[in-house]
Design a protein around this nucleic acid. Structure first.
Lengths: 127, 127
DNA sequence: TATGGTGTACTATGTTGCATACTACACTTA
DNA sequence: TAAGTGTAGTATGCAACATAGTACACCATA
């Protein structure tokens, strides 16, 4: 009943990798609003991780409003939410600045970066 | 003799913050190739961090080829190096994909993202 | 009503990374 | 020679991560 794929790699925390995989699945519409999401125990069993780690994933996704808890049932994928001012600032200022600094340091062209953004954006179409 | 500025914030490792500050200083030409870089003990004293942490910063920057060790003297800022294939792939694929996924999840427009890239790029001019 | 599945909350252990303190050594410059 | 350089090592305290196991309140369903 897992409707997204993961390939673990060392160095980065398991729970972060799962969270990212879920976000990617939502953005690419492999997971749609209203879809049921695996329970803590199911997630733990299918991915062969500790229940605590699975719980950590779900709690995190609920806090980020990607999931909604249905008591007694499980959790469900929610509608996409508009970013808060703080989230917008973090991405458009902090994160993109990091990206630009790293690109310039490695002598990567502005065009290459922008083309890569466009390319990744169109992989899952829509504006 | 510190020619770059830092304002520490909790949550992210000190040594990472310093490394990023140095990269930013290089990209914005506050630090130029040939400039001398603070020694381990100097960095440790001025930033009031442990010598081990300062050593970790410098070793990391040498490994990334941003600094060159001059034995008995200290270290010096080197010329910018072209990215390796692996570094290019990491930025243009992995990092930008992360950015795009997060932006789409938060319903941020493609135009906003690209404008932010252009904006940050031009803050330190040149192609 | 009873059963089973749900999220949630604990305690505990082992590993790893981060930052600190301190000591020591080989090297080069002045 | 003396002082400064990078480098290496041991040790401590703290926090994050992942694991194991137990327990509880809640709700849906048979």
């Amino acid at each position: 009943m897992i409707n997204f794929s993961i390939k673990f790699q060392s160095g980065v925390p398991i729970y972060e990798q799962i969270i990212y995989a879920v976000k990617k699945a939502v953005v690419s519409e492999q997971l749609r609003p209203g879809d049921t999401f695996p329970s803590v125990r199911e997630l733990s069993k299918d991915l062969r991780i500790n229940p605590n780690t699975a719980q950590k994933v779900i709690a995190h996704l609920v806090r980020e409003k990607l999931l909604i808890i249905k008591p007694g049932i499980g959790s469900v994928v929610s509608e996409l939410k508009e970013a808060t001012d703080l989230q917008r600032k973090d991405i458009l200022d902090t994160e993109i600045e990091k990206l630009v600094v790293e690109a310039k340091r490695l002598l990567i062209n502005k065009k290459e970066v922008i083309d890569a953004v466009k390319s990744h954006w169109n992989l899952e179409n829509e504006e």
